[in-house]
Structures are given as structure tokens and as C-alpha cells.
């Protein structure tokens, strides 16, 4: 029982289930429909892709504030190239390469030069947001169908961003569980110096982590732009904080060493669920933020109390 309570994936899963049942009873007409449930998942799908990268970084004991800007950069750059007449695959590849470059820029200064991750990614967040304004201006519209198709098509009645999210979740879930490469992040987050002395190249691994996180943000940017059918320079604003909230709700800790990919998904899903119920209950947006903040404090407080008891 105690172990179950300490496993965030289990507690959050049960909580989501209970809230879902409660919402079904409260709003039997609106909540438990295929369309509404799909809408909840669809709403969180793009940020969940960003959350996968953030979860990996937080397992390693670090984080990236620039993901929202990177998301916007990748989307805007793809849109700009399409409008210039480049073919869709080239636009997408260049957009992803730009995300990769930003990730490498972060990783290089954090892992090689030794700048604090908060400062570095905060700076990058501003720099990249500026680049987005240069590229997207007041917005880029009239994107070709070949690009719109990426994020707006359906398979088996389910919207494509959900499929993208599920595929990436599955791949990274398996990688984090099974591969030597990704398991190292748990050691790095557990004790960076001990990891180095155990022969794990902490610097390199962190650099790869930032590259990966930016790349996933780039993928999310393409999906979002494709869904919107336009690139808007304010895309992804606040994404970094929502994603970090979701990842922490999903069981990551700021000191690193713990967390699972499934937790990143459940954390996002939980936030989407709350938002959906608020809308159904006609609660104003201000209350959503208040309630989400309180839930975050409650969840972490619960964790700390439980751990302090176990530690004695």
C-alpha cells in the first residue's frame, strides 16, 4: 500500500480514473463521449511530446526553459520555407535542424562551458523568441495541403497528433526502460559526480539530452503549426511552465534521478482533464490556474511528507 502511494504513476492513474468517473456522473451528457475524450487527449498531445524531452532532462537533474520558443521557431521556420515555395519534406527537415541547433547551443554552454541550466535556457528562450518574431512577423498563413495534412488528418477516427504522441511515448518508454544509453540519465540525476566516476560521460549525455529535448519541441512545433494551418509568433508561450508542471505532477523531482515517461503522459493528461472539466462546469480561466497551482503544491507536499516518514 505504502509503495503504491509512493509510485506517482499509480496514484496519478487512479486519481485520473476517479476524476473521470466523477465527471461522467456530473456531466453525463457532455463528458463521457468519444468526441470529448478525444478532445482532451488531442489538447494535450502536442505538449506531451515536449514533456517527453523534459522528463528525460529532469531525470538527469536539469531542465530546459526554451522549449516553448523552440517549438515556435520550428513551426515558423517550416511555414516560412513553405511560403517561399520549398517542398514540404525540406521545410520540415530544416525546421527540425534549427531545433537541433538550438538544443546543441544550450547543451554546449551548459555541459561544456558550465553555465547554469536555468540561466542558459532562460537566455535561449528570449533569443529564440526574438528569432521567431523575425521569421513569422505577424503570422504566416496559406500553408500547402501537404503540410496541413501532417497534423489534421485522421487514422481510425483518431486525430494524427494523438498518433504521433502515442508513437513517441511508446518509443521513449521502451528506450528509457531498456537501453543502456537512456538508463544513464537516472544515474546522472542520482549523483552526477558518482556517475562521472563510474565511467558515464555526464557532459556528453547532458548535451545529447538538451538536443533531444529541443528536437522533440521541434516536432511539436511542426504539428502545432500544421494543426493551426498557420504560424503565429506567440505559439508555445508558457509551454515550458505547463510542461514542467506536468512532468513534476507525473513523478519527476527537481533534484533528478526519478521519473518515467508514462508519468509525463499522465501529468499532461491530468492537466487536460482538469481544464476540460472546468470548461464543462463553466468555471472561469482564472480559476483553472489557481486550482492547478494548488494541486501541484498538494501533490508535492504529499510526496515530501511521505518520503520524510520513509526516511526515518
Amino acid at each position: 500500500m505504502k509503495q503504491l502511494l509512493q509510485d506517482r504513476v499509480a496514484t496519478l492513474g487512479i486519481l485520473i480514473l476517479l476524476i473521470g468517473i466523477g465527471a461522467s456522473l456530473a456531466f453525463p451528457q457532455q463528458f463521457p463521449t468519444f468526441d470529448n475524450l478525444q478532445q482532451i487527449v488531442l489538447n494535450v498531445s502536442i505538449e506531451t511530446i515536449v514533456a517527453i524531452g523534459m522528463m528525460i532532462l529532469m531525470i538527469a537533474g536539469t531542465f530546459d526553459l526554451s522549449v516553448g520558443s523552440v517549438l515556435a521557431l520550428s513551426g515558423s521556420l517550416a511555414a516560412w520555407m513553405l511560403v517561399q515555395g520549398y517542398p514540404m519534406p525540406i521545410a520540415v527537415v530544416v525546421a527540425l535542424l534549427s531545433a537541433l541547433a538550438v538544443g546543441w547551443f544550450n547543451g554546449f554552454f551548459i555541459a561544456r562551458i558550465g553555465i547554469n541550466a536555468l540561466i542558459q535556457t532562460l537566455a535561449t528562450m528570449g533569443i529564440v523568441r526574438g528569432l521567431v518574431l523575425l521569421v513569422a512577423g505577424s503570422g504566416i498563413q496559406d500553408l500547402p495541403y501537404s503540410f496541413i495534412y501532417i497534423g489534421q488528418s485522421k487514422m481510425l477516427k483518431v486525430q494524427s497528433p494523438i498518433w504521433w504522441m502515442l508513437a513517441l511515448l511508446l518509443v521513449f518508454h521502451l528506450l528509457l526502460k531498456r537501453s543502456i544509453f537512456f538508463r544513464r540519465y537516472y544515474y546522472i540525476g542520482g549523483n552526477e559526480r558518482a556517475a562521472d566516476l563510474s565511467g558515464i560521460r555526464v557532459g556528453n549525455m547532458k548535451l545529447y539530452g538538451f538536443v533531444l529535448s529541443a528536437l522533440l519541441a521541434g516536432v511539436a512545433g511542426i504539428l502545432l503549426t500544421s494543426r493551426l494551418g498557420a504560424a503565429i509568433s506567440s505559439m508555445g508561450k508558457g509551454t515550458e511552465l505547463r510542461v514542467i508542471t506536468a512532468v513534476i505532477l507525473g513523478g519527476a523531482s527537481l533534484s533528478g534521478g526519478q521519473g518515467r515517461i508514462l508519468g509525463a503522459f499522465l501529468g499532461s493528461l491530468f492537466m487536460g482533464l482538469i481544464a476540460n472539466i472546468m470548461v464543462l462546469a463553466r468555471v472561469s480561466g482564472a480559476w483553472q490556474d489557481i486550482i492547478l497551482g494548488l494541486i501541484l503544491v498538494a501533490a508535492i507536499g504529499f510526496d515530501v511528507v511521505l518520503r520524510n516518514r520513509a526516511g526515518r
Binding site: L197, G199, I200, G257
Partner: peptide, 25 residues
């Protein structure tokens, strides 16, 4: 501060060096 991974299990601590080097798979 440099030897153990305090919040990891005994097994994970023993196995830490198995993750050394350039192994990807």
C-alpha cells in the same frame, strides 16, 4: 558525494559501472 547514488537501490548502485563508456544498446 562521489561514491553512491543515495536514492537508488543497492542493485542499481552495483550496476552503475555497467553503463560506462560508449555503449548504446
Amino acid at each position: 558525494s562521489q561514491g553512491i547514488f543515495p536514492d537508488h537501490s543497492v542493485a542499481e548502485n552495483i550496476l552503475a559501472a555497467q553503463f560506462a563508456g560508449a555503449n548504446w544498446g
